[in-house]
Nucleic acid binder design. Structure first.
Lengths: 140, 140
DNA sequence: GTTAAATGTAACCTCAAAAGTTGCATATGT
DNA sequence: ACATATGCAACTTTTGAGGTTACATTTAAC
């Protein structure tokens, strides 16, 4: 969802967008968008101003924001994580296996982020415009 | 969890293991293990026999089972999937963006599986034995 | 054969995380 | 000043994974 919101902001090319409008675009609730925007703000991806007829916009050029950064900023639960088992380790083998799997999954995680880093918002924006054949909407 | 169970089975090197024992090793419930084993059975990774003093064992050598296969067999919810939005597409742009993101995420998914395919159970087993310094338990 | 031990399976419960909802205080262009 | 938009708190809803209990069925071993 974060990627979708950021793509819309990139599409708007600096024009501030309200959370209500973003919510309509992603078909969800404005508050959910605002919660997400807070995260994206602290990550430095967007700037948001309060008040009438303003909203949020990208704080960086789309080329500077890649999927790995977004992933790290937004993702809370790692996809490859061992469930936190109780530490009663009745089986020493199970304990050793866990230690080994943590290494393997950490390596996978790193590889995943390296892969995500290859794509940035500008790439996605180009893909959107190409697949839909629409000209980019510029601010007035 | 699937990886953990399969690693234990690989560690046991063909010796049939009961779901109760596996559950103790992963510190969970035998029924959960059995449910998982059903999936691993239909994927062709394990063989299970009913009856007294039997259980499950690997159906293939550990070198033949890699993490990508396990991932595909077990994983239900894709980590990179757009939430199924309603099809009322009030915003054509949003629709185009979704189509583009599906492509991007599919590519990421493919890259992830390519990465996972690099590691198989034999690798993990070697890592376990190395990090714990225990000799492999052979059948009798 | 009988029996103990194991799986297959159904029907429930629990729990946590994400998303959605409501309400209101606060800030800010016009 | 006022309409508009965000920040934020508290709550509910939803969803999926995991856990639990119970029981019929299968099978090796005695």
């Amino acid at each position: 969802m974060a990627v979708q919101v950021l793509t819309v902001l990139a599409y708007k090319a600096g024009e501030p967008v309200t959370s209500t409008l973003l919510a309509a675009s992603v078909n969800t609730n404005p508050v959910v968008i605002r919660r997400l925007l807070l995260v994206l703000q602290s990550a430095g991806f967007v700037e948001t101003r309060k008040g009438a007829s303003v909203g949020s916009r990208l704080a960086q050029p789309p080329q500077r924001i890649d999927l790995a950064q977004i992933y790290r900023a937004v993702e809370t639960a790692e996809p490859f994580k061992l469930p936190q088992r109780s530490m009663e380790h009745p089986c020493a083998v199970g304990h050793c296996i866990q230690a080994a799997l943590i290494q393997v999954f950490a390596a996978t995680e790193t590889a995943l982020e390296r892969e995500l880093a290859k794509t940035n918002l500008a790439h996605i924006l180009a893909l959107v415009e190409k697949s839909c054949g629409q000209s980019r909407q510029r601010p007035h």
